[in-house]
Each structure stands twice: as C-alpha cells, then as structure tokens.
C-alpha cells in the first residue's frame, strides 16, 4: 500500500521551490525577451506543475497506474494541441492561398 507519508520537510522544500520559481518567472517577465518570454513562462510553469504533482499530489509515491494515467492525460493533450497547431503552422508552406 502506498500509504508512505511524505515528510513535512519535503512539503516545505516543495513550497520554497515553488515560491522561488514564481519569483524567478515574475522577474524574467519584466525583461523583454520577445517570443521567448512566452516559452520560458510555460516551461517554468511546467516545472512548477510537476513539483506539485510529484510531491503535493504524491504522484511519486503512488502506485504505477497513477503515473500511467497522468502521462496518458499529458500525452493526449499534446496530441490535440500539436496536431491542431501542425495544421496552422503548415498552412503557408504551399504557394497557393489558403493551403
């Protein structure tokens, strides 16, 4: 049984990590990085989200099935967004209007 209690210390470190990343992302936001600021923002958000999932949500400590479900959700979201964006990104590739 995956009833292994996560220690308070782990939670505290997670909290500090999350707050530090929030500070980092806020400071980065004040600099003009062009399009990169969007990408950097989402990347840092992804790191924060994994910290929450792994420690606060116990994904690291639960049965394997939970991690499979989690990965499945992520993969399906990526399928949706990447195939949709794929259409929009390749629209201008052919020298005909609209294709």
């Amino acid at each position: 049984m995956s009833q292994s209690t996560v220690s308070v210390k782990t939670y505290a470190f997670t909290l500090i990590g999350l707050l530090a990343l929030t500070l980092l992302t806020s400071l980065l936001a004040l600099v003009d990085l062009g399009n990169f600021s969007f990408i950097a923002g989402v990347a840092i958000a992804a790191v924060k989200a994994s910290l929450i999932a792994c420690f606060f949500m116990h994904a690291l400590y639960e049965m394997k099935l939970i991690r499979v479900i989690m990965a499945g959700g992520m993969i399906w979201f990526l399928i949706m967004i990447s195939l949709t964006l794929g259409d929009y990104l390749t629209r201008g590739w052919m020298p005909y209007p609209g294709k």
């Binding site: 195939l83 794929g86 259409d87 929009y88 990104l89 390749t90 629209r91 590739w93 052919m94 609209g98 294709k99």
Partner: peptide, 11 residues
C-alpha cells in the same frame, strides 16, 4: 475545409 495540405496528408 481549408486545412493545410500537409496536415491533410498526415491525417
């Protein structure tokens, strides 16, 4: 529907 030709080929 106006989908890109590359997307259409993939699908």
């Amino acid at each position: 529907a106006g989908e890109s030709a590359y997307a259409a080929m993939t699908f």
